[in-house]
Design a protein around this nucleic acid. Structure first.
Lengths: 152, 152
DNA sequence: ACCATTTAGTTCGAAGTCTAACATTTTGAT
DNA sequence: ATCAAAATGTTAGACTTCGAACTAAATGGT
């Protein structure tokens, strides 16, 4: 009897963290400053899009909001980001990069891109295209699932 | 100018942790015993395949070997797994489930499958099939990358 | 307008994870 | 056969993250 597709998906999904591990493996943040992984990720996401509320970034980085406060505090202390009150919702703080923060963020982003490019270069062109499509599907699926969740 | 495919892949890959988050969100290990997430994952992987050396499981669970020692110790202490010396390499310990461990592992696996099935049921059939294919590509790609890495 | 509920972010003690140094065993080159 | 290098797993202290309780602000129903 062949397994239900749901079960197959569950099985494959459980291997995703390992996939990420393989993809990330060997990448180093050789910035001039000491940053832990969460701080690095935060700067990378800020480099892609600044000015969102903290909760958005905490979700992207994959931390609970409690933990993310620590990360944000540390980045502020190091002078790489600022908490800015922009919206008319006074509970929210938009995060913005400082000038130094922008430099570091750019470095991290470039380093990550370079690392992935190197990884991906070990694959044949067809595999690269398939990987790209696969990743697009995952993101598309994620958005759809988030939408559905919100409707409840 | 359109971005290089490598850069697009890097960008999409950075969203994978969030994808996993959305997929896992809402799942709870309602076993009769208190287990942390890493312990649960470990039992789940053991349920799928027993008898591998510790380092294999640490990679699957996504922990450093140092941290995994803690997890294994705790599972041994709770009576769910055993360290068995089977191979002729005397540094290696194969992990095996105890009888109680098997029960718990089966519960966790069933719970996870059920959770994923519920998530996936929010999608249309076409999306489900695409997701399945996408996940297969990721695993295929991971294996290929691991192979290439080993050749160096 | 009121107030219960929800949301954004913080705090802090407990829990979990990392990292680097280490012991032990295996591998591979000579 | 020897020995340096690599691999498996452990230890312990530093660091990071969780989770629950909290403050403050916004929302929405009546």
């Amino acid at each position: 009897m062949s397994k239900l597709i749901e079960v197959k998906i569950a099985e494959l999904a459980s291997m995703l963290p390992m996939f990420i591990g393989v993809l990330i493996d060997g990448s180093e943040m050789d910035t001039s400053v000491k940053l832990n992984v969460s701080e690095g990720k935060t700067l990378m996401f800020l480099h892609k899009h600044e000015g969102d509320p903290m909760t958005d970034y905490s979700r992207k980085v994959g931390l609970s909001k409690g933990s993310f406060t620590t990360v944000a505090d540390s980045l502020v202390k190091k002078g790489f980001i600022k908490r800015v009150s922009v919206s008319n919702d006074r509970r929210k703080y938009a995060l913005m990069l400082t000038d130094i923060g922008k430099d570091i963020a750019k470095q991290i982003d470039a380093g990550f891109n370079k690392h992935i490019a190197k990884k991906v270069s070990q694959l044949e062109e067809e595999d690269i295209n398939n990987l790209h499509k696969a990743l697009e599907i995952m993101v598309y699926t994620m958005d759809k699932l988030k939408e559905r969740e919100d409707q409840i």
